[in-house]
Design a protein around this nucleic acid. Structure first.
Length: 273
DNA sequence: TAAATCCTGTCA
DNA sequence: TGACAGGATTTA
């Protein structure tokens, strides 16, 4: 379940923990997680490289190494853990990077949906990093840019918010939270939203994502940061996971849950119009 | 545009 | 025991 705030938290930590460290060895237990080369090539390509920087694009972690870029997507249940080698080797640990500072970076993934790829080029030249929509927390993502995205879109607003080619990094939890904040029903056709509704969505998006980043994300299910800690945003969720409970806006409504675009949407049928 | 797919663990 | 959780891609 890592979405933008969770991935951002991990990226910031790993950038501190791994910057200028060298990969001195790699062990692959689950070859299937590596999507574009064999385990053999993966190990050979990474061993001896230095990690220069770690950044984020959408929900992808981008590892910048000398002469190579590694992309990691945690999908539903991936964790990247920076641990001492004596830490217990728990079930679902699939890839281990041995580092020059004596630590290990371990890729753990209960559901094994994650995906790791390597490219022998800089990040700027990787086509799949160009397919995403704008980064919602970037300072230059203004209301005018946000508003312009919605023109002529017939799709329901919730699946649109979750479309990574529309806006990067928003998943099921934050889409539900943003729409509840704005009082917008998840099935509303995007092009039919008025300026005030879009403004509230924009404000909610900035406020919710930034607050969650500040609190190191939401641990609803399996999310942990790179030190194995849970995020602090869980107690601020106002609709996600609250089906059947009273709407916190005190409108008298009860949070409903229904499938929208093959995902469960949580919303208040009274105050989300 | 909608459903199937990948996967394991949890819960009814 | 089987439905469900879900991000992004693939298939219908």
């Amino acid at each position: 379940m890592p979405e933008l705030p969770e991935v951002e938290t991990i990226v910031r930590q790993l950038d501190r923990q791994l910057k200028n460290k060298k990969i001195i060895g790699v062990r692959v237990a689950q070859e299937k997680l590596i999507k574009n080369v064999s385990a053999r090539e993966f190990i050979k390509a990474l061993t001896g490289r230095t990690i220069k920087k770690i950044s984020r694009r959408a929900k992808l972690l981008v590892f910048h190494l000398n002469g190579l870029t590694m992309l990691a997507h945690l999908k539903m249940s991936g964790r990247l853990l920076y641990l001492k080698p004596e830490a217990p080797m728990v079930k679902h640990t699939h890839i281990i990077f041995k580092l020059s500072d004596g630590h290990e970076l371990r890729y753990w993934d209960q559901r094994r949906f994650g995906a790791i790829k390597i490219f022998r080029s800089t990040a700027e030249k990787i086509p799949e990093l160009k397919t995403f929509g704008p980064e919602p927390v970037a300072a230059d993502f203004t209301f005018e840019k946000f508003r312009a995205l919605f023109a002529k879109k017939k799709k329901a607003v919730k699946p649109l918010l979750m479309d990574p080619t529309f806006i990067a990094g928003i998943g099921n939890i934050y889409a539900d939270e943003i729409l509840h904040y704005a009082g917008v029903h998840p099935l509303r056709p995007a092009a039919g939203l008025n300026k005030l509704e879009l403004l509230k969505m924009y404000q909610g998006l900035k406020k919710i994502l930034n607050k969650s980043i500040a609190l190191r994300g939401t641990s609803f299910d399996l999310y942990q940061d790179s030190s194995g800690k849970e995020g602090g945003y869980l107690k601020y969720l106002r609709v996600y996971g609250r089906a059947g409970k009273k709407c916190l806006k005190k409108c008298g409504g009860q949070i409903s849950r229904q499938k929208i675009g093959s995902r469960s949407a949580h919303f208040c049928p009274v105050c989300q119009k």
